[in-house]
Amino acid sequence: MIPVLEIFQPKSVDEICRLLKSNNGDTRIIAGGTDIIPGFHIDSPRFAGIKRLLDLQLVDELKTVSINHQIISIGAAITFSDIITNPVLNSYLPLLVKSSKTIGSTQIRNRATLGGNFINNAPCADSVAPLLVYDAEIKIKSFTSEKIMKLQDFLVKPYATRLNPDEIVTKIMVPVPSTDFVGDFYKLGRRRAVSISRISLAMLMMNEDKIIKEMRIASGAVTPIGTRLYDVEEFAKGKVCNEEAFKEIAIKLGERILAVSGLRWSSEYKIPVVQQVCYQLIKGIERRSL
C-alpha cells in the first residue's frame, strides 16, 4: 500500500539539499519511482517509514548531459529514454546506451533514471556494469559538503550504498574512453522485454599488435551487485589474442564470479553460461577490432 505521504517538488539541487538537511531517514528522493512505488505496493521493508518524498521532476539541472575537458557529465535524474536518444552518449558510451535499451519497457524507460538504477542497487541493475567499465565516478552533495566517489566504491551490497540520508547524487562523471577501446554489453533475460537480467556483462578491450593491452570487465545479476572484475582484467592483460587465451579469460571469469557469489540456487545455470557468454563477447569484440 502507498502510505500517506508529503510530496515536495523542489526546483534546484540547493533546495533539495536544504530539505534533506536534517533528514533522519523519513525523507526519500523519488526520481522515476519505478522502484519505490512497486516497493510500497508490496510493503517492502526497504521503503518502510517514509513520510516525505522529494520528486526530482522539476530539477532540470539533474537531467543534462555535457562534455568538458574529456569528462562526460550526466545528470543523475536522466531517464533511460533520454540516454538512448542522446547523441553524446551514443558516440562515447555505446555500452551504456545498449544496456539502457534492454531495461524494462518503453513506459519504464520513460520514467526510470540512471541515478535511481544504481542508488537502488539491485543485483540486476542493467546500467551498472557499463558504468563500471567506463570508470564512472559520481558527485554527491549535501547541504554542507560535496564529494566525488568512484561508483564501485559507492555500491556496498545488494540494495545498499554509501549514500547518507542528507545526500543526493547529482552527477555521473565518465572520462571519455580511448577510441582504441572496442566493447560490448550482453544481457541475458528470460524474454525480450520487461525482463529482469539473469546475467549481464559489460566489456571493453584494447588490443595492440594482437596483444591485449587492456581489458575491462564488469558483471551484473550474476554477482551480488554490479562488480568490476579486476582480477580477470589483470589476468587478461598482455595475453596474445587467440582462442586459448580467450577461453582462459572466460574460465578465470567463471572462477572469479563463483568465488564472489558463492554457490546459489541458480549457479548451476549461471556460472557455465556466463563463461560461454564471456567467450562469445570477446570473440565478437575481436572480430570488430580487426
Binding site: 577461453k247 567463471g254 560461454q276
Partner: peptide, 14 residues
C-alpha cells in the same frame, strides 16, 4: 555443454 563442474573445459566453448 554443461557438466557437473561449473567451470568449463576449453573444449566446452562453442
Amino acid at each position: 555443454y554443461i557438466n557437473d563442474s561449473l567451470i568449463l573445459n576449453k573444449n566446452d566453448f562453442i
